[in-house]
Structures are given as C-alpha cells and as structure tokens.
Design a protein around this nucleic acid. Structure first.
Lengths: 185, 185
DNA sequence: ACAGGCATGTAAATAGTTACATGATTCG
DNA sequence: CGAATCATGTAACTATTTACATGCCTGT
C-alpha cells in the first residue's frame, strides 16, 4: 500500500476521534503546521482516496442543519498508521530563505548580512512567542487525553525557535565584531 | 520581475564566477542542500529562462573536446540578486517526518516512540559528522575568497544538527524515565 | 443585516523529484 | 576495457499552494 506523505497526517489526525476535513485542516494548522503542513487541496481529495482504500470511513454527522461528514479510522487504517509509525523517518527537509540569503551575503556589505540575521531572529522570536501561547492548552490536553507527545513536540518547536534566534544573535555579534576594525564601509 | 525561488539560488551560485548547470547542481548538493535543494529538472530550464530574461549569460567553455556552457551573471542579474538579498526572508519551511511520528506516537507503546527518537538522533548525528568533514575546506575557502558566510552557514548546520540530536536524547530520557514506574508494557 | 466562522470542494498554477536518454572523457 | 564522472537535457509524475465557488449557521 503506497500512500502519499499527507495521507499519514490525516490517518493520525483521525486516529483518536473522527473528524471532518475542515477540522483536520484547523488542527494541522495549529499543531503540526510548523513541521508538516497540509492544505484543503490535499486533504479533501486524500480523504476520498483513503475512504476508497478502506482506511477511513466517512459518517454523516450534521451540526444542526449544516451537513458535515466526519471520518473515522478503520481497523485497516490503524494497522497502516502503526506500520508507518514503526518505520524510521525518511523525510528531513528544510527551506530556510534566510540561510540562503546569508550564504550569498558576500556580495553585499556586512551590515546587510546583519540585517538578514536580525530579520531571521525577529521572526523566530515571534514564532516562539506564538507557540508559547499554545502551551497551556497543550498541557491540559496532555492530562485530559493522557498523551504527552503533542506537548513534547510543541515544546520542541519552542526550544528550536529560541535556539535559532540565539544563534542569529551570536552570528550578528560575530559579524559586527569582526568589522569593527575597519571603521564604516 | 517575478522569479521562482530556485532562480535566486542559481543567481547566487553564478554571482562570483561563471558555472555550468552541472557545477551548480554539484555545488548546491554540497553546500545549500540541507536548507535549499535544487534538481537538474529545475536548474537547466531555469538557466534557460534566466538567460532569456538577461539575468545570466551563457558562454561556451568546453573542457577539451567535451562541450560545456558556463553561465555568468549580468549587471541586471546582479541588481536582481542584491535586491532580493535586501528583502527580509519569507520562506521558512520544515518537513520533519520524525516529529510527525512523534506527534502521533500516542497510539503506540512508549518504547516505539523512544525508537523514533533514537532514529532521529542517529540521523542528526550522522548529518553533523558529514558536515564536519566539510568544515576544513569551507575554512580554506573563507580565507581564499574572503567570504565568511558559507562557513558560517555550514557551522550553523552543524550546531543545529547537534542541538537536535541532544534534544532527541533529552526527550528519550524523559520518556523512559516517566514509564519506568509501570515496569515493562 | 452582516461579519465571521463552519463546511466541502475543485481548477489552475507552480514546484519539485525521479528516471531516463545520450554521449564524451578520464582514471585505474 | 570498464567504471565513474562530466555534461545537458526532458518527460512523466507527484506534491502542494492559491484562489475561488458555494452555502449554512451563529453571534452581534
């Protein structure tokens, strides 16, 4: 069974309770988003495919008069999810435009490279702050659902953002320190 | 001028000296690869586009009898590159399958989550080691070309890989520590 | 009444990888 | 001589984003 990478996010997201496509999207956006995103354009077609493959099952679950379909994982779906979870991870990708700009910064004066570092740092600090606001809710859920992993991953995200910000700061200092000798270019 | 994200890697890569598509690919693979990749399928068509747009210029530069075209950046290309370098970075993406697996690890016994963490850690240590072997060459180049940035970015990559490995270790300890009470599941 | 959120979806465009084809040259 | 590397490219596929269309429901 060859599933697309996004298929597993969906399987995981419906593994504990049935959810609608809309809910999956919202959940992805405020949990896995920073290391694994998914858009409507992927989620809805994928739900259809998973449903045809018998890994999830759609059930009508209207809210009032508004129609709504939630998808529940099937026994096969759970097997598939667990089999995947037991495989060692294969995908490790990063696209960090700031590092790319820093890499090429030699064609500009050092002050411009420092500016890139400051922008990177500011961005990471913002991310860290946003993630921190989510921490209390994740902490609650941990106790409620007896599942420590989402909180662990969130805290990893916070630590990473802060580590990165700190690195940017260090590099900026190093950069400006080493140009101080030749006064103003 | 709306350029594709990959266009800038290419502009950057030819900004100091003319290079062939093949060389660009090789260079990307051993420098920016871990935060910005590019494949032949992108590089060759993009070189053609950049050439048509007048941002680079292809020049015949055969090696012996084997034909070969190197691309040099033009004045317009350099303006475009510098303008882009001065914009604050916009793209920050990460796809880390290990974190996704960890996020969903609640459906498996803790030992399996620990296994994922071990695999993640091993992978990062491997990456760190590989990057470290590249450090001396980058150090040489820094002095030779008077360009500290590629080395800085490389060292950032090493530090990140090591930080991540250490985080995995810490999480594994936390995980196994908290399950020690209920002996063997 | 209207804004915003809930809900489902699709079309089009863009991005990116993989695999292949082709052929020369170099090194052991 | 054969393998590896240099070199250029394309076709097919997979992935992913963006923008749009549609319409209901809830709170102000």
């Amino acid at each position: 069974m060859e599933l697309s990478p996004t298929a597993y996010v969906i399987l995981g997201m419906v593994s504990r309770e049935p959810r609608s496509g809309y809910e999956i999207k919202a959940l992805v956006d405020d949990t896995t988003r920073f290391f694994w995103a998914a858009s409507y354009g992927q989620i809805y077609p994928e739900l259809k495919r998973l449903s045809e493959a018998g890994l999830v099952e759609g059930v009508d679950a209207p809210r009032g008069e508004r129609k709504r379909t939630v998808y529940a994982i099937t026994a096969d779906g759970e097997d598939e999810l667990k089999a995947w979870l037991r495989q060692p991870p294969q995908t490790f990708e990063m696209r960090e435009e700031g590092l790319l700009k820093l890499f090429f910064a030699g064609v500009l004066p050092p002050e411009q490279a420092a500016e890139t570092l400051r922008a990177m740092r500011a961005h990471r600090l913002q991310v860290a702050e946003r993630l921190r606001t989510m921490e209390p809710k994740a902490e609650e859920k941990k106790l409620e659902k007896d599942d420590p992993y989402p909180l662990m991953v969130l805290q990893g995200g916070i630590e990473f953002a802060e580590w990165f910000a700190e690195w940017c700061e260090r590099m900026e200092t190093r950069l400006l320190g080493s140009t101080q000798t030749k006064r103003s270019s």
